[in-house]
């Protein structure tokens, strides 16, 4: 059980890293080419997902 809990923590940590890099990359793309991401996808949803995963990881 402890091992499973540790595994889940690792998974959420890795997903958190993934969302962090993705968010940073998409924001940088938006800075250089405005609307390149926003026309397709609202970054607020990604930010929300990043926060939720981050909170789960911390907790």
């Amino acid at each position: 059980m402890i091992k499973t809990k540790g595994k889940n923590k690792i998974i959420f940590r890795e997903i958190f890293y993934f969302f962090s890099i993705l968010l940073a990359a998409l924001v940088i793309l938006e800075i250089f080419w405005p609307n390149i991401v926003l026309v397709y996808f609202n970054l607020n949803y990604l930010l929300l997902a990043w926060l939720i995963v981050g909170l789960i990881f911390i907790i």
Binding site: I10, I11, E14, I15, Y17, F18, I21, L22, A25, L26, L29, W33, I36, V37, Y40
Partner: peptide, 24 residues
């Protein structure tokens, strides 16, 4: 397993950024 998992996520990341650049 962790290496595979990170490689997989890294590829998805590259694909997503590549997709946006393609549409640009």
């Amino acid at each position: 397993p962790l290496f595979k998992w990170r490689l997989f996520l890294g590829l998805i990341l590259v694909m997503i950024i590549g997709l946006f650049l393609y549409f640009k």
